[in-house]
């Protein structure tokens, strides 16, 4: 039997203090699939994303990548496993270290795993081109660019390791319509070329309908296949 090609949260349970946020939630994102995730504010969408991104240890349940169970979280995840899942956060301001130029921001994950520098520069240029960042923007720091430009840089950073799974936590909520469309198009394009699995958390029903292959309500049931 071949191992399943999906990122899976299996019966995940998370509680903050005594407040149970996720109670036995199961969600899978298969390679090549776009899954929409919705639910009212505070229902645990972001927590689920953090669990899937191996950033938050669930109190119960398992996370596995293509059938490989992940035991640790945060620093304890082996780099080879960790870089197969990338996250695009809601607020690019919060997700970007204010001290780094956009170039360094995009290159940081490669440098963190000690990739050779010439290759790093080449990859940054390639990704900057993909997300539509001009070279003069790349030298600037986060405070000197717009939210849209910064989110493009964060997207480039998320794609830098060529992840198999991309988790977008309301990643387009703070962007204007044209940037939103462009970011969505870049993600869709990447998904096609790499056959990546994408999880989209959004309140934007129109975007969800256009984009997602299936939509999951965090109540648990699959509500409506969009296509």
């Amino acid at each position: 039997m071949t191992s399943p090609q999906h990122l899976l949260a299996d019966e995940v349970r998370v509680a903050y203090d005594r407040q149970v946020v996720l109670d036995g939630v199961t969600l899978s994102v298969a390679r090549g699939e776009t899954v929409g995730l919705r639910g009212p504010s505070g229902c645990g969408k972001s927590t689920l994303v953090r669990v899937l991104a191996l950033l938050h240890r669930p109190d119960g349940g398992r996370v596995s990548i293509d059938g490989t169970p992940v035991t640790g979280v945060r620093y304890a995840v082996p780099v080879g496993l960790r870089t197969r899942v990338a996250v695009l956060f809601q607020s690019p301001r919060a997700a970007a270290d204010p001290r780094l130029s956009l170039t360094d921001l995009i290159a940081e994950p490669l440098r963190a795993v000690r990739a050779p520098e010439p290759g790093v520069r080449e990859r940054v240029a390639e990704l900057a081109d993909l997300v539509g960042l001009t070279p003069d923007l790349l030298t600037r720091r986060p405070h000197a660019v717009s939210d849209g430009q910064l989110q493009r840089a964060c997207l480039a950073r998320a794609l830098v390791h060529r992840p198999d799974y991309l988790l977008c936590d309301e990643a387009t909520a703070m962007l204007d319509a044209s940037t939103q469309a462009h970011v969505a198009a870049v993600i869709a394009g990447y998904q096609r070329t790499r056959n990546a699995g994408v999880l989209v958390v959004t309140h934007d029903e129109a975007l969800m309908d256009r984009w997602a292959d299936r939509v999951v309500d965090l109540a648990g049931e699959v509500s409506a296949p969009a296509r």
């Binding site: 990338a86 270290d97 994950p109 830098v160």
Partner: peptide, 24 residues
């Protein structure tokens, strides 16, 4: 902070996060 999460997600280890993102 989220940018620390982002760094970890990118594959940065404990020492790199400390030296590169926290101490500065």
């Amino acid at each position: 902070r989220t940018f620390v999460d982002a760094a970890i997600s990118g594959g940065a280890g404990r020492r790199r996060v400390l030296v590169r993102h926290l101490l500065p």
